[in-house]
Design a binder for these strands. Structure first.
Length: 137
DNA sequence: AGGTTGACTGGGG
DNA sequence: TCCCCAGCCAACC
């Protein structure tokens, strides 16, 4: 099984990353958003960055997830822009990411990519609800 | 203070 | 479709 020590990653793996300074806790906001991705749905690094209002910070999102502060953050639901698993997932085991996603019902194409149009999350409900409920009034 | 790194992206071959 | 290159930008050293 591929369970890493949640505790060790919390206390010693990335001590400084847990107190992100750039932009009032960008890391924390990344974790908060990723935690909301529903089972069986995915998001790309670029989309996470965009949803947080920092469209060009895709690489920084990667930094945040590398630290993967808590086991409660389903970081396996974040893929590269081409719907591919992250090369560095689980310290170089993207297959683990795939296994987790498949366990949630996400199917992969022959090339090892996920159909983002089919499995992509639309984002926080609130954003979608706002335009629909309030409309113009 | 400055160079390097990286779980990214988009474009081109 | 896959691989490589240039641009990207904060974190890291």
């Amino acid at each position: 099984m591929y369970q890493r020590n949640p505790d060790s990653t919390l206390s010693q793996s990335s001590p400084r990353s847990l107190s992100p300074r750039g932009k009032d806790g960008f890391f924390a906001r990344v974790y908060a958003l990723v935690r909301r991705i529903p089972r069986g749905k995915v998001l790309t690094y670029g989309q996470v960055a965009a949803l947080l209002g920092e469209a060009r910070w895709a690489r920084t999102v990667g930094w945040a997830l590398r630290a993967c502060a808590s086991r409660s953050v389903p970081c396996h639901r974040v893929l590269g822009g081409r719907g591919r698993c992250s090369p560095g997932y689980g310290s170089g085991h993207p297959e683990r990411q795939r296994a987790r996603l498949e366990a949630e019902g996400v199917r992969f194409r022959l090339g090892g990519t996920v159909d983002l149009a089919a499995y992509g999350w639309l984002g926080p409900p609130r954003a979608a609800r706002r335009s629909r409920m309030h409309g113009s009034a």
